[in-house]
Design a protein around this nucleic acid. Structure first.
Lengths: 350, 350
DNA sequence: TTGTATGCGTTATCAG
DNA sequence: CTGATAACGCATACAA
């Protein structure tokens, strides 16, 4: 072993090696690869040739030090469970982000924020101070969210996946309108004849559930109806099951229930069925997200499908734009769409 | 919402600022923070004090350049679907990895490898050449996997989550034995009286399905039985459903079916039920992974639970060890355990 | 025990 | 148009 501890990258070519081989200066090589400055075509080709021959790749650490750009962005996933869980929908999000980053040689840094365990301000501050990422993608927008101001103060470009609690605080990606899917769902249910529709939504304090609850009420009103009930429970199957039981125990149970997520809806269906009632004959159920498993439960889940991949991709595109990159790829963002399967039907006695 | 996107960083204190404030040299500050060299306690305290006051954090780019260590590791997730999907179980894995990384100020770089779309050798080579990560965590071990040799040749420490196709090629984390859960499942089923047990396993070519198939046959033999059938299908609910139909159409259908994943099992149950058969009365079903949704399907899914979080954590610990870090945390790794719920029962006619 | 000098690989500034 | 040269922020032999 010639080098201590067998440290690799001891022989990895540098820009000077390339320059030497091409018979130019290091600066020239830099210019060729960054498209900055003017280099004659023949020289440029010689440089490229040399780089290829040496298999040279610019050293990101050196670039980061010199330019103070990390060529990486961060994704902050939040979780409130004791054992940090990353929601199922984030999976598509990540893929979408990567689809735009990797062709540009941008890295994706993952950060899991644990509510209760991490101090929010300190967490985000350290994100910024570590200078490992040029910008961040935030998720899980809450009412009164202070993270956007924080990131702005820290000078870290940020894009929210979701809708901010008040306009103008941050760049964001979301369906337009953010409540998309709710009116369609209500129309669908009302069209089937339902008049007593309940909404077991996600927790209070989060923006998306809020928006959806309001849209729910508004659209029912449009039909001259009022909600059977609206509840806010934690994003967990167990919480949804419990609330479902409560609803079913009531004097006049709803004939249809919307849930905040697919897994909540699945738990709700199970709860309904376990009491001898049938879905959709006795109670119709609608989920939210469009997870694949919804096609394989009995009955198949009617749900509002979102396109997590596209959301991630769009968020990455917006953030890269903020960072001065030009995006030429197509970055479509489809509206959430109601997928009617088997868990919805006309109410009993119609 | 146009963020400055530009030069923050101006005003960020450097090690020299700290040194100046503490009245020492920059070298001294470095020594204090790295525990290298000998610095007198009072001086060290002064330095720490100064750093705190200036809110100084070492610049990772500078460290990376100087030491050629990125203080980050990579996680490679693989996917074969056209739209890159990251499996549900990876979610726990990521959390587990992060739980060990973040206290050490290590970053986690995500890389999604798309089978068919990416050239394997080039992909991993570029991972190494980019020098953004000090090591990688690999998943989805396949038979004849060449990635381990590749990483070794490239000098990049690697840890596999799973079992390698042949011993000694790579450090790895897996249950001991890797087939854990299978014997318990077989014993459970045989104990219930099943003699015709089928296994709808994951794809051929992957190591884990192979191991599990062999263990399945071996354990049945231990009971003097032979498999009803063993099939290898893609990791998708649809593929599992199709195979289930095939089994059910056979002359002598199995009375119990093991599936490669929970979602496959759920799809299988649905297929069974859609043909007028009942789970578990007509056919018992067992899944694999222990996803929460398994508790909320009807019947509740009997499954082999793995602990993805722990696996991620253990893999991170091993990789950090390879990188010379000392791990003091507890890094337990429980064996997969059979969770008997409602989808298994004695076969009909017993 | 502490300080000094040097260089990691790159980009930007400035002369040629 | 091209080529030296000086930082970027830090760690580390070596001197003191």
């Amino acid at each position: 072993m010639t080098s201590p501890a067998g440290r690799r990258r001891h022989g990895r070519p540098t820009i000077s090696d390339v320059a030497a081989l091409a018979g130019v200066s290091a600066g020239a090589v830099s210019k060729v690869f960054n498209g900055t400055g003017r280099i004659s075509p023949p020289t440029a080709e010689r440089v490229r040739e040399a780089a290829r021959k040496l298999n040279w790749t610019p050293n990101p650490a050196a670039i980061a030090l010199r330019t103070s750009r990390a060529q990486a962005i961060g994704l902050v996933l939040t979780s409130s469970s004791p054992v940090p869980e990353v929601g199922a929908a984030n999976v598509g999000l990540i893929s979408g982000i990567e689809s735009l980053l990797s062709p540009r040689e941008y890295g994706l840094l993952l950060n899991v924020f644990l509510t209760g365990q991490h101090d929010e301000s300190a967490f985000y501050r350290s994100l910024a101070e570590r200078q490992r990422m040029d910008g961040v993608i935030l998720t899980n927008s809450v009412v009164g969210d202070t993270r956007f101001d924080l990131m702005r103060d820290l000078g870290v470009p940020a894009v929210l996946v979701g809708t901010p609690w008040k306009p103008g605080v941050v760049d964001y990606i979301d369906a337009d309108p953010p409540s998309a899917g709710i009116p369609e769902t209500v129309d669908h249910l009302v069209g089937l004849g339902h008049r007593d529709v309940a909404f077991v939504s996600g927790p209070d304090g989060f923006v998306l559930p809020n928006i959806r609850r309001e849209a729910f009420t508004a659209r029912l009103a449009h039909h001259g109806l009022t909600p059977h009930s609206i509840s806010s429970v934690g994003y967990s199957p167990a919480a949804a099951a419990e609330e479902t039981s409560r609803l079913l125990d009531g004097a006049a149970p709803p004939t249809a229930i919307l849930y905040g997520t697919d897994t909540m809806a699945i738990a709700g269906m199970r709860t309904i069925q376990s009491r001898g009632l049938r879905v959709p004959e006795d109670v119709s159920v609608v989920g939210f997200e469009g997870l694949e498993v919804g096609e394989w439960v009995d009955p198949q889940l009617t749900t509002v499908q979102r396109f997590a991949f596209q959301r991630g991709r769009a968020a990455a595109a917006k953030l890269l734009g903020l960072l001065g990159e030009t995006i030429e790829e197509d970055v479509p963002l489809e509206k959430p769409v109601l997928i009617v399967r088997q868990s919805t039907a006309p109410p009993r006695g119609r």
